[in-house]
């Protein structure tokens, strides 16, 4: 019974100053890089958006591994399991919200003439 509760077991022993230092340096580098790309307008709008999204994702992974120590966990990897469950919920929540709301925008927020046109058409159909 006790064995099953061993989620991070011996991994409690931290001896990883270098890990923190590496994570810190990489994070600072990524943050400043993203900042410079935006303030110096290096590239087109979509290019910049794509690059800073990539940098943020990369920094997310670096901090989860180096600061939150998710990679150094013993089997059974329950922390990882909960983390992946959280990621799934977050993706469904954020992606789903954006999808539904952009769909609504598309249907409701078109130009006034387009709406009038549509309504005329519908009333012509016996609406």
């Amino acid at each position: 019974m006790m064995k099953q509760n061993n989620t991070s077991g011996k991994a409690i022993k931290y001896d990883k100053t270098t890990t923190y230092l590496a994570g810190y340096i990489v994070s600072v580098f990524l943050t400043v890089a993203a900042y410079l790309i935006v303030t110096r307008h290096l590239g087109s709008r979509y290019f910049i958006l794509a690059v800073i999204s990539g940098l943020a994702l990369f920094q997310f992974i670096v901090q989860v591994l180096f600061f939150l120590n998710l990679g150094r966990e013993m089997r059974p990897r329950l922390k990882l399991l909960v983390f992946l469950g959280m990621l799934m919920i977050v993706i469904i929540l954020v992606g789903g919200s954006l999808w539904i709301m952009s769909n609504l925008n598309y249907r409701m927020m078109q130009s006034k003439s387009a709406i009038n046109n549509y309504m005329n058409q519908q009333s012509g159909n016996g609406f």
């Binding site: 077991g9 409690i12 329950l78 922390k79 909960v82 983390f83 959280m86 919920i89 977050v90 929540l93």
Partner: peptide, 27 residues
């Protein structure tokens, strides 16, 4: 040690639910 790591795991689960709260606000 076992008990401590179980408690830390519990705290980890709380952090993950907090992530979902932030995901809602981001959405």
């Amino acid at each position: 040690m076992q008990r401590d790591s179980t408690r830390i795991f519990g705290f980890w689960v709380y952090l993950m639910t907090d992530c979902v709260l932030f995901a809602g606000l981001f959405a």
